[in-house]
Amino acid sequence: MFSKHLSLKITQWLDKRIPPATDVSLHRRNIFIFPSRFGFLFLVLCVALFILGTNYQNNLILILAFFLLGLFLVSLFNSYLNFSGLRIVIGKVGYPFAGDSANVPLWIETTTKKQTAHGRLHIALYGKNVQLSVDLDRLTNPVDVAVPTSSRGPQAIPRITLSSFYPLGLFRCWTHLQFASTILVYPSPHPCSVVTYDESGEENQEGPVSDQQGHDDFHSLTEYQPGQPLYHVAWKQVAKGQGMISKKFSGSSEREIWLRLTTSSGPQREADLSRLCFMVLELDSQGYRFGLELGDTLVPPAQGNHHRHQCLKALALYGFSEVSHE
């Protein structure tokens, strides 16, 4: 109970101290620094050497102890200076399906006017274990951070913790960055048979697709139209001297087809959205022109990558805009 309260307080304080942004330069206000575990071991070592030197009245050991202590202090500054040279910009966030991990690309700029940052940078989600470590001297931008997702819809990117032990591992410099960007999570596709409707709203009983095949299903022969793919030409017939005849496949149907959400509420809705997601992917991969109807939201029939994204986005956001309107 108490720890929950405490972590809430810390989160609130962090929100105030490091507000969301898309482009963060690390500086005094958003860097934390504290001796690492090895740093404490090092201090204990300094004390031990001091005692050893004092008891043996050995100035050399004392000098060693003081030198290490001096190094500890110098390392504090170097550590901070190095870390404060970083600039982190969030890139284009990917669109994951629910349950998958979203790819959050971070662009890390190590060189500022003052200096260049070095050493390894450890990246973790706030409160989680270190997910990946990058070597700033051999950096290839962007660095992809995986953020797990659970359900569809817009999702905030959790705080991302960056930490560095440069230069000697005595201090840990870290920051918890909040990026002002959201992840749009598509519903997870649920395999099912594709049910489509035609323009009038009638259900297409046989369906344009019988599961996986379709594109290669031979349908009929027609007159060749200039511009049609050459591999659709029925060469056998051409060879027989029947003129240019092209094969027509059931996949390349010219009819406009629609996908539609039948339930509008209840637990069934999510499952239906998942099925629709699968259908969108299926139809898209087979090159269909299709539209999507989700209650009030209409995505007019089209095809291509952009269209697929529009449909999946509509599926992901279905229900969320209503909430935000109210």
Binding site: V89, I90, G91, K92, V93, W107, N141, P142, S181
Partner: peptide, 8 residues
């Protein structure tokens, strides 16, 4: 263009 999300 690489960093901003406006550019696919």
């Amino acid at each position: 263009s690489r960093e901003s999300e406006h550019f696919p």
